[in-house]
Design a protein around this nucleic acid. Structure first.
Lengths: 210, 210
DNA sequence: TTGTATCTGAACCGAGCGGTTTATAAACTG
DNA sequence: CAGTTTATAAACCGCTCGGTTCAGATACAA
């Protein structure tokens, strides 16, 4: 995965190629995207494209890696630890839920799953940069909340995973199966609230002030 | 989806074709499976195959529909309502968790997601026959348990969805991303137990005798 | 046995794919 | 300006694919 191999990173049109590739890959997947389409979308000749990237696979990996990085950063900016636990969780749940059903996340997920046999490294890279990283951040926060006496959790890792799983209720699989691709804010808010309620019922200390 | 159109269902080798198609499609997906491969796997000439099915798409749909039916039946046989709620849920959680990460379910899911643009009906058909149907059964059971006073649930539909979502914690996404494809029974049992614990903490009546 | 429905294998078609090449043009650099 | 790097368009190659065709083999029913 860290293999950049023989990619030419200098040159005026490198970024242009990458942007075009991102656009077409995200829309059509790996097999569905033809190199001609990508070159056209990038506003670049096929020969130019191949002067930067030795083949389609490597171009795809480059794009996917960039997407993973973006996703990771986005998750990082989600938690603000200064507020009380329930509030923090509510905000995190809302953002996470919205993100999980976004066009962006859905497309990347779809490609990872679809090409899992062709690119085993891709699924792993995405999982680590995305879900795993996000859950690590969440677990770290939960740990602090526990030591502040706000929450009662034995296994913060499992709790973090349960939290993000609860944010998928109802809408995520509808998005994954292509049944619904646009979600209203109040749908998202409701799922987030349900998730926090359930989470706090199990892990909240003292009376669940739901 | 109910469109059978011009499929020839009579003839000695119909089932043979279907079995071969199932095998190859499940292994390689829609694009990955070539008609020649399927004919070979079915032990049938390509011409014969095309005498039954007008094209590859319809053959795929037929296979996928059959798989959905099987899945639906399997989920149906999961609940035994005579025992106490916690026990019923524990059994259901174990079976559901094991099913969700099985080779079979993962392959069907992968194909649905990968081909969602090419076959929008497929995703819908699978969703209805699989998750939605399973959750309807679960919600029906929860309803009874509530009226027996075993559980306290406002929205049984949401509760059913939360239940199945909790069964995915930790292992499901690892399977989906191709990071892990074999799961020990004790891993499954642990997730199932965690799911039931959390569920009962929120919806159990009286003292949570965890 | 004769007639009919079914199956076979292999050749074939046209299209699209990833990738290469080449001759030409444009853009930087000294 | 000259020289070199970079980009272009289009033709081209080999391959695989979905789908068709057809002459002959096989099964089966009378």
């Amino acid at each position: 995965m860290t293999q950049t191999a023989t990619i030419l990173r200098t040159g005026r049109k490198f970024d242009q190629v990458l942007r075009g590739a991102r656009e077409v890959f995200m829309a059509d997947g790996f097999e569905g995207a033809s190199v001609d389409d990508i070159a056209r979308a990038a506003g670049v000749s096929k020969a130019t494209l191949y002067s930067y990237f030795p083949d389609k696979r490597l171009l795809f990996m480059e794009v996917a890696q960039n997407e993973c990085r973006l996703m990771s950063e986005r998750i990082l900016s989600m938690i603000d630890e200064t507020k009380p636990a329930r509030e923090v969780l509510q905000i995190a749940a809302t953002q996470l839920t919205a993100f999980l059903v976004s066009e962006f996340a859905q497309q990347v997920f779809r490609i990872c799953v679809a090409e899992r046999d062709r690119f085993p490294e891709l699924g792993r890279a995405f999982y680590e940069a995305g879900p795993q990283n996000g859950q690590r951040q969440m677990a770290a926060y939960l740990e602090k909340a526990v030591s502040k006496g706000e929450l009662c959790i034995e296994d913060v890792q499992i709790a973090a995973e349960q939290f993000s799983e609860l944010c998928k209720v109802r809408i995520w699989s509808r998005a994954a199966f292509g049944i619904q691709n646009c979600f209203r804010q109040d749908e998202i808010d409701e799922i987030a609230t349900q998730a926090v309620d359930m989470f706090m019922a199990n892990y909240g200390c003292g009376p669940s002030k739901k």
